[in-house]
């Protein structure tokens, strides 16, 4: 079955080939392939899916079905900095909700959006990260921030924006 070819993006093509080479060992495992794609591109670009679909002779719909099933995969580019809010029980009980709202407010995120307009921040929530004793927990660029408060959240954003990471 013919699939749309990647349009004139030789860079993308080259990076895809590298992923493919790395992937050959685990033939046909869509999840690990998507994980590899996301590692390289930061998200799952549409044309890479069609590219791999053609190379591996796996229907593009299978990729899409898997990518939309798991929370880990992103089909849109994400911000430079990723803020992850833990939505576990303890964090909920200890008031993570208002903090998330505050962060979204500061980044001027409209309802339903997760990435700020300037592409600097993406705000997401995950199921429990398992650090309940220091709830509410936020993760800013892989660094864990415990016992978060509204005030500390603003500081965290400023710190990350300045590139200090904290």
């Amino acid at each position: 079955m013919p699939q749309p070819v990647l349009k004139g993006e030789s860079m993308t093509d080259k990076r895809c080939e590298e992923v493919l080479e790395k992937h050959q060992k685990e033939k046909g495992n869509i999840i690990s392939l998507l994980q590899n794609i996301q590692e390289v591109f930061g998200y799952i670009p549409e044309d890479t899916v069609f590219w791999f679909s053609r190379e591996l002779n796996i229907p593009a719909s299978s990729f899409y079905g898997v990518a939309t099933f798991y929370a880990q995969f992103y089909l849109k580019p994400r911000g430079k900095n990723i803020i992850t809010a833990c939505c576990g029980t303890a964090c909920h009980v200890k008031g993570s909700g208002p903090i998330i709202n505050k962060i979204r407010e500061e980044l001027k995120l409209p309802e339903g959006e997760t990435t700020s307009k300037d592409g600097k921040f993406t705000v997401e929530s995950v199921a429990c990260v398992g650090a309940c004793s220091i709830a509410p927990v936020f993760i800013g660029n892989k660094k864990v921030f415990g016992k978060m408060t509204i005030e500390k959240a603003s500081e965290m954003l400023k710190g990350i924006d300045k590139g200090k990471g904290a």
């Binding site: 939505c87 576990g88 029980t89 303890a90 909920h92 199921a127 429990c128 398992g130 650090a131 309940c132």
Partner: peptide
């Protein structure tokens, strides 16, 4: 694949 919110023994 410990996912229960509030449980983290496997991780530990």
């Amino acid at each position: 694949d410990e996912g229960d919110p509030g449980a983290f023994m496997d991780r530990s």
